[in-house]
Nucleic acid binder design. Structure first.
Length: 970
RNA sequence: GCUGAAGUGGUGGAAUUGGUAGACACGUUGGACUUAAAAUCCAAUGUCCAUUAGGACGUACGGGUUCAAGUCCCGUCUUCAGUACCA
């Protein structure tokens, strides 16, 4: 029987599905292990060879952990809300639910073909109402929570109402909107219901606010900061502008410090932790208030002076402040500008507003700004300081205003030089005639009154103290992390469980969830610019009957309008990991017992592109749910591995400009050409184009002409991200058909280290496929191809070759030889280490060596072949199952126990290595692993003798480490 | 600019705590078996010199530590990724 992988793989995939081999139990005496992949978005293009890379790695680990006696949870699902299905719906009118369903079916088929050990009974889909019911529920819980700084956690909003009713908000320390008006208990109790709601909204962890957002006109929606790349939308590459809109926001800033601290408790790649750290952007410093001159007491009344609050990380340099700069968007700009400067300021502000983000970013070198004509008072010297505006100060960071210290900050320095503003040097022994001095460590302050002679640390402390005495500043920690906008003007997302009474948002009670997406006849925004849900006919809330009803019934008494926005893509993916623990639960998002048992994800594998999106939001929600007592854990993913991207090798053709002629790569420089992508399936392994297929590929190429070199059309090649639009996508189906899923799995692992990006190239796949054939033969009549059989040609048809002769299953009960055992245990050790270190690529080599050695040893002992099959089964599960079955086992190999490594079989002969020592020839000694004390002594003595014979000296020091090399120092 | 990662044959990539660099695979060349092809098996394959025996040089570059450096230290260069006027 030859290795018929197609039959074998189909057989075992069916077997696993029927027997439910990979179902995880929520009750088990075994230790638990949770292995999770980032679930895919089911796109119309299907899976390409890059997708399964991480899945194969996690599958190997999951199968390995099962062999090691763990109760393994290894589920899979779909992140099925998203923009592409909606864009497709806009173009074709096809309902996104239908497209999504079809795409999922295709994904499932492809995933099944690769033989993953997923527990499909726990599948989740974020677009399934049974799933998003709980996404809506979490939203309501966020709405019903506030962040208590004293308890350092989120609490129920009802607690806050109790506090307000008894003592007002004066003693409440919350992370909330900045401009909260203080009130007493009496005042609170006297507020109307609407006033109370408005106040509470300023405290809630999700809140409605008029925010400046990134608006993408082409997509008709708002984008989060991480959905924008270089000033254009990540999807589609459309321009993005700033616009004010009323939006739902998530108060993730409340968790900034805990998100930072939590990074120390999890095992994630350092670059990823770094990028979250940068994103959160903690900086320590002080906030300082500068009063604007003329102080307003001379204006009469008790009006307070205008005050500019700044954030600085260098309060120690406050005496070096020679001007201030406001962002052009700063709210005080209009108020403080003097009449003489008005025109210049207005012109500048307008010019800045017109510049797109992109232009502003592209042009960071040009220094620009305008003097407002106003002055502020230095808190200590009481000197007047000119106030400027300039676009190097960003409205979105800190307070949108800086105290400019040109001697200590290069940007302030450049600005001052450019506009001839004086520069005061406040550093001892430093020359600032050429550039600013920003080295904190070497700082000694001078020319600064009470700060003179102090270093950075002491001066900072003292400056903050003095500012506090004046009531004009305090120590402050500033975070770059902004609250996350949570509204999207889209159709294909989770609807909010929200209706509006008198303009105030109301939550729909959990027992009436889910609020299911309504039908609409078109998926575009409405003519008036409302989100697509504005087109729904049945989209109003009957607060008496508690159901969704037709919109034309809205009476604002019992029937109210529903929220028209939907939630962003990251909503469902922020908590899905818990749904797998108890996927069918209709009464809770997962039962407490299930969550207590499974805790959190032990191993998470996925791409690093989610560093500041999904992986941050998910940590935020988990911390929140933990605070409110819904989750036992505070971090979602204990260990994370980023698999590298598999890149495609694009092919390019060169079209002679303005013609239908295509010139081969070698001759392209003789013409003026433009390059265009061509489908890689039309190219053979030597970069030659299949001209006939190319003409048939697309109608526009039917009458193409070619300028060939040596009768061939050679294309250009370049490695790029795999993408449908670049025609460089390779999907796994063809490979599964031609070489089998096991070959694909082995090959994807063999390609290189998991974390590394690498181009896809099928050239080497015959290597791993050949290994599987050898493995198969190892369990069968292996001698057939190694020695000539004189009868062979008589037995079989001459033309059928070796395949025609039946290979006989050949494992026996024979005793394994020493060599057999050595090979086996060497392999166990290496494979175990490799899997634990996630270096799956090297273990494939280990298998090849093992099979080659055992073949050479003509090993047919069941005692070797059986454990070998278990070792290989995580990598190549189908062939391992088949061989396991043939060895006479009735249970699936998935339940087999991982073989135990026994050091004693690794008997190496003691070896001497030559080294050169002080120009003389010496030897080093390597001891075998299994020697006892006496044997070691004997070996060392023999070794010393050799050394003596060489130069007549005895080594002075001998370091003996069993199993290691002996270091002899003369 | 800043942060992080990495530079090893024709190619992908191996190499424990420093210990025979180039495992394993692809590719290439030669051979066996075939009428032939495919498949399979065997051998060679870092570079240079040499008929052979053998020798020299080799892990981006320049230094250093060490009996011993791909690995550790200092400096330089290059590439990739992330981030960007963050006060």
């Amino acid at each position: 029987m030859s290795y018929d992988f197609n039959t074998i793989e189909a057989k075992w995939q069916k077997y696993w599905a029927e027997k439910g081999t990979f179902r995880a139990e929520n009750n088990s005496t075994k230790p638990k292990y949770y292995v999770l992949d980032m679930f895919p978005y089911p796109s119309g293009a299907g899976l390409h060879v890059g997708h399964p890379l991480g899945y194969i790695a996690s599958d190997i680990y999951a199968r390995y952990k099962r062999h090691k006696g763990f109760n393994v949870l290894h589920p899979q699902g779909y992140d099925s809300f998203g923009l592409p299905a909606e864009q497709y719906a806009i173009q074709t009118g096809q309902h996104p639910a239908i497209t999504t369903k079809e795409n999922i079916a295709r994904y499932r088929e492809q995933l099944d073909n690769i033989g993953f050990s997923f527990d499909w009974s726990r599948e989740v889909r974020t677009s399934d109402p049974k799933f998003y019911k709980w996404t809506q529920w979490i939203f309501i819980e966020l709405f019903n929570s506030w962040y208590d700084v004293d308890a350092n956690k989120a609490r129920a909003i009802s607690d806050l109402e109790t506090v307000f009713a008894s003592e007002g908000n004066l003693k409440v320390h919350a992370i909330c909107d900045e401009d909260i008006t203080p009130f007493t208990a009496e005042e609170w109790n006297g507020f109307s219901s609407k006033e109370k709601q408005e106040i509470l909204l300023q405290y809630r962890l999700t809140y409605l606010a008029e925010t400046e957002v990134n608006w993408c006109p082409q997509l008709g929606t708002v984008l989060a900061n991480d959905e924008i790349v270089n000033g254009v939308s990540e999807r589609g590459g459309y321009p993005v502008i700033r616009k004010k809109m009323t939006q739902w926001s998530m108060r993730i800033s409340a968790y900034a410090q805990r998100l930072l601290d939590g990074l120390n408790t999890i095992d994630w790649p350092q670059p990823l932790k770094d990028s979250q750290t940068n994103w959160i952007g903690r900086s320590e410093g002080a906030s300082v208030t500068f009063n604007v001159l003329p102080l307003r007491e001379d204006l009469g009344g008790d009006e307070k002076p205008y005050a500019i609050e700044v954030f600085t990380t260098r309060p120690d340099t406050i005496f070096g402040t020679t001007f201030m700069t406001l962002a052009p968007e700063h709210e005080l700009v209009q108020k403080i500008t003097t009449p003489e400067q008005k025109e210049a300021i207005v012109t500048y502000v307008e010019a800045t507003a017109k510049r797109s983000e992109r232009e502003r970013m592209a042009d960071v070198k040009t220094i620009s700004g305008v003097f407002t004509g106003a002055y502020a008072e230095h808190p200590f010297t009481k000197e007047p300081i000119p106030i400027w505006i300039g676009d190097y100060v960003l409205a979105g960071y800190g307070t949108g205003a800086v105290m400019a210290v040109p001697c200590g900050d290069q940007r302030d320095y450049d600005f001052a030089k450019h506009f001839n503003i004086p520069i005061t040097n406040i550093f001892e022994g430093v020359d600032i005639s050429e550039e600013a001095f920003a080295d904190k460590e070497k700082t000694v302050i001078g020319n600064s009154d009470f700060l003179n002679g102090l270093n950075y640390k002491k001066a900072t402390k003292r400056a903050i103290y003095e500012l506090e005495q004046l009531g004009q500043g305090e120590g402050k920690i500033n975070y770059r992390l902004r609250d996350a906008v949570f509204s999207r003007q889209r159709y294909w997302g989770e609807p909010f469980p929200v209706y509006y009474v008198d303009g105030m948002p109301q939550m729909i009670d959990v027992q009436h969830l889910p609020i299911v997406l309504p039908e609409v006849e078109k998926y575009l925004p409405t003519e008036t610019g409302e989100p697509p849900l504005g087109r729904a006919d049945v989209w109003a809330w009957d607060a008496e009957k508690n159901e969704v009803v037709s919109n034309d019934k809205i009476d604002h008494k019992t029937i109210f309008p529903l929220e028209l926005n939907t939630m962003p893509g990251w909503a469902g993916s922020s908590w899905y990991l818990f749904r797998y623990m108890d996927a069918g639960n209709d009464t809770e998002f997962a039962s407490a017992e299930a969550m207590q048992y499974w805790q959190n994800v032990d191993l998470y594998i996925g791409g690093s592109e989610h560093a500041t999106g999904h992986l941050l939001y998910s940590r935020f929600w988990v911390k929140f749910l933990h605070d409110r007592g819904f989750l036992p854990v505070e971090e979602p993913f204990k260990k994370l591995i980023n698999q590298g991207m598999i890149l495609g090798t694009s092919a390019f053709m060169y079209r002679v400009s303005g013609s239908k002629k295509y010139v081969s790569k070698g001759l392209k420089d003789q013409y003026e050409t433009e390059e265009l992508h061509v489908d890689v399936s039309l190219i053979n392994s030597s970069d030659e184009l299949d001209i006939e297929s190319f003409k048939k590929w697309r109608s526009e190429f039917v009458d193409a002409e070619f300028i060939l070199e040596d009768g061939k059309y050679i294309v250009g090649r370049e490695v790029e991200k795999m993408s449908k639009s670049k025609y460089n996508v390779v999907n796994p189906d063809g490979i599964c058909e031609q070489y089998g899923a096991d070959s694909l799995r082995l090959y994807e692992m063999f390609l290189g280290p998991l974390e590394q990006a690498k181009p896809w190239n099928t050239a080497g796949i015959t290597g791993v496929h050949g290994f599987l054939k050898k493995l198969w033969k190892l369990y069968h009549n292996r001698d057939l191809n190694l020695e000539k059989d004189p009868n062979y040609y008589n037995q079989t048809s001459k033309w059928d070759g070796f395949k025609a002769k039946e290979l006989v299953f050949g494992a026996t009960d024979a005793e394994p030889t020493k060599d057999n055992l050595k090979t086996l245990h060497k392999t166990i050790k290496k494979v175990e280490e490799d899997i634990e270190n996630f270096s799956f690529n090297t273990s494939v080599s280990t298998f090849m060596i093992a099979v080659n050695e055992l073949t050479a040893q003509k090993c047919n002992a069941k005692a070797i072949l059986e454990p070998l099959a278990v070792l290989i089964s995580p990598y190549a599960p189908h062939i391992a199952e088949e061989l396991w079955n043939k060895l006479g086992n009735s249970e699936s190999i998935a339940t087999a126990v991982f073989p135990v490594f026994d050091e004693k079989h690794l008997v190496e002969s003691t070896k001497q290595y030559p080294i050169s020592f002080n120009g003389k020839m010496r030897f080093m000694l390597e001891l075998s692993l299994d020697l006892n004390k006496d044997e070691i002594e004997a070996a060392v003595m023999a070794h010393e003798k050799t050394q003596q014979q060489l130069d007549g000296r005895t080594p002075k020091k001998v370091i003996v480490v069993p199993g290691k090399i002996v270091n002899v120092v003369g």
